[in-house]
Amino acid sequence: MLSQAIKPHAMQVKGSAKMHRFANPTRFLRLVSAIKPWATGVCLLTFAAGLYFALFASPPDYQQRETVRIMYVHVPAAWMAMFCYAALAAASASALIWRHLVADMVARATAPIGAAFTLLALATGSLWGKPMWGTWWVWDARLTSVLILFFLYLGYIVLNGAFDDASRGARAASILAVVGAINIPIIKFSVDWWNTLHQPASVVKLDGPAIHMSMLTPLLLMAIAYTSFYIWILAIRVRAEINTSKIRALQIRRVTASDVPWNDS
């Protein structure tokens, strides 16, 4: 969300004043702290309403019965897993193209959130699969793709932290995120192909007929809750990332000031 908020401005290469508006960490921080209370409020409200509808005010499915309630935490997590990777790739691309410090920080702050959502999608999917399919895990196309997505997140996070110089890690990881984003359609295609070759028998398709309104309400509420949760956590983490880089800059300045005797400051 936030990375999208920067992008339209970053797109206007001609209006360079606008382009650099949010590239300035301090100005970006001000924007972030303006958005944060709203995101927090929306997150808490929709979570409360969503949970109420998901657990009390929605009927059991006639086929999956009560287990359909897992859908309300599972499907939004899967959506967010993909949305976060899109945000990660978009922020990484703008970090590479325009060298925006802030884009780097948005990408770095997004990665753990996306990884957490991916992990949740996998785990809750597994908990849904056990009563529905009779097994914790099937090598079905969607599960396999999400598992691979999780590995892509892990690669990004590990590469980001693998260098002594944090800015090098950020740049290397940005390239990886963009390469991964180009590769994702190919992975999806190959996993679908592989799955039609080795179709596991007796899998109940989870996407049945069109969803009834009584189930759509909790689903959408939870989707809004997850999205605003992402924005809230992103605001916190981006601020922490900006702090970290400020601390590093201050420490470097201090070391250079104290080590050089003729630098009289």
């Binding site: 892509l152 690669g155 693998a162 290397a172 990886l176 992975i187 190959s190």
Partner: peptide, 20 residues
């Protein structure tokens, strides 16, 4: 290049991309 853990890191980054 220049990362703290070379060999295993490459596999972790690249193997998912090579699944197709």
């Amino acid at each position: 290049l220049g990362a703290r853990r070379g060999g295993v890191l490459i596999s972790l980054l690249i193997l998912p991309l090579l699944i197709p």
